Amino acid sequence: MVKAKKAATDVQRRSWLRGAPPPRWVRILPVLLLVGVGVASLTDSVPLDIGFLLGAVPPLAVLAYGPLATALLGAATIGMLTIPFFNLDRPGNTDLVTLGFVATLSVFVSFVRGRRDEQLDLERTVAETAQRAIVPDVRRRVGPVRCASLYRAAERGTLVGGDFFDVRTGPHGVRAVLGDVQGHGLSAVATVASVLGAFREAVLDDVDAEAIAARLDRRLVVDSARTEHAELFATAVLLDFTPQGREVRVLACGHPPPILLRGGAVSTLELDPGPPLGLGLADVMSGTAATVALLGEDRLLLASDGVLEARDASGAFYPFAERLTRMTGVGLDQLPDEIWADLSGFAPKIQDDVTLLILTLDDSAPE
């Protein structure tokens, strides 16, 4: 979702039983069975009672072929069973009628499957387009800020879950946000859309991170009021890059603070966090934004709970900062994939959305 490459990876993760095209061995199997039975019947001097295996060819063809190819394979099966040259069991009329019925039924099932596959492909395309509209790709450069990101939704087959992030430029500089709404999966998509919409408006209007947090807080409070017992809330980290200079103001709203990678050192920023968004407290106790001076190669790494709360088989939490010390030499564009590979190896089952956003200032980037 975050990059085209990531979307392609997600498509490849789907098994063929979940909508992906069938693998090559599934397409070869009915042809291989047909040829194998024919060759076995010709190479053995004693007739073999293996004609019954041909009855599996049309149903196997349904898994990978359209109606025409399924009909041709069914006709080839009946032909091989009846041609005396192959000497396959000398089938009676009942056997031929049964096989003919199976072949005809397979053609019909193949036709229905093809129509449903077309409809599912259309629905999947529409769903992916809608989800990408909610959380579009983050550009590699946003003003003077270079960006790298990764997103893995917890709910299989979706591109958007309960995590959200964005990097935008406006009249007051580059702003970034990463957060996590209540819940995950499809049920949280509407809340993610609402929060990101409010953030994109705030980038154009609000002058600092505190004002942006107050706007997001009000948005969630209003949304909660529309639905009884909704209780919508979200945690977030807001970054406000100064238009000039190498400073960034960081405000945490119930979310773990970013991690600073400086040379070979890894440290967690010390912040005075405010409450989560959506509780109606942003105007009262919004927390204090900390100003961080960034050096030439400094990188700020923001992560969601799916990273910080992942556990191994023994129940131990993923030691994120400790693991990052081994990756300080990895390039910005490669770092998200490196972290994902390490996290996947550490935690056998990741049950929450995984989101990473890595930002660094680049003075050579066009404004």
Results as ranks from 00 to 15, higher is better:
Val26Ile: 14
Ile28Leu: 15
Pro30Thr: 02
Val31Ala: 01
Leu32Glu: 04
Leu33Phe: 03
Leu33Asp: 00
Leu33Tyr: 00
Leu34Cys: 10
Leu34His: 08
Leu34Met: 11
Val35Gly: 06
Val37Thr: 09
Val37Ala: 04
Gly38Phe: 08
Gly38Glu: 08
Val39Cys: 09
Val39Asp: 00
Val39Gln: 00
Ala40Thr: 05
Ala40Lys: 03
Ala40Asn: 08
Ser41Pro: 08
Leu42Thr: 10
Ser45Thr: 11
Val46Met: 12
Leu48Pro: 05
Asp49Gly: 01
Ile50Gln: 03
Ile50Ser: 00
Gly51Val: 07
Phe52His: 12
Leu53His: 06
Gly55Pro: 06
Gly55Ile: 12
Ala56Met: 13
Ala56Phe: 13
Val57Leu: 01
Pro59Ile: 06
Ala61His: 05
Ala61Lys: 08
Ala61Asp: 02
Val62Phe: 00
Leu63Ala: 15
Tyr65Leu: 10
Tyr65Asp: 05
Gly66Pro: 11
Pro67Leu: 11
Pro67Arg: 14
Ala69Arg: 15
Ala69Gln: 10
Thr70Asp: 01
Leu72Gln: 02
Leu72Ala: 07
Ala75Phe: 10
Ala76Ile: 06
Ile78Lys: 02
Leu81His: 06
Thr82Asp: 07
Ile83Tyr: 04
Pro84Tyr: 01
Pro84Leu: 01
Pro84Ser: 12
Phe85Asn: 05
Phe85Gln: 06
Asp89Ala: 11
Asp89Gln: 05
Pro91Phe: 05
Gly92Arg: 14
Gly92Leu: 13
Asn93Trp: 10
Thr94Asn: 14
Thr94Leu: 14
Thr94Phe: 14
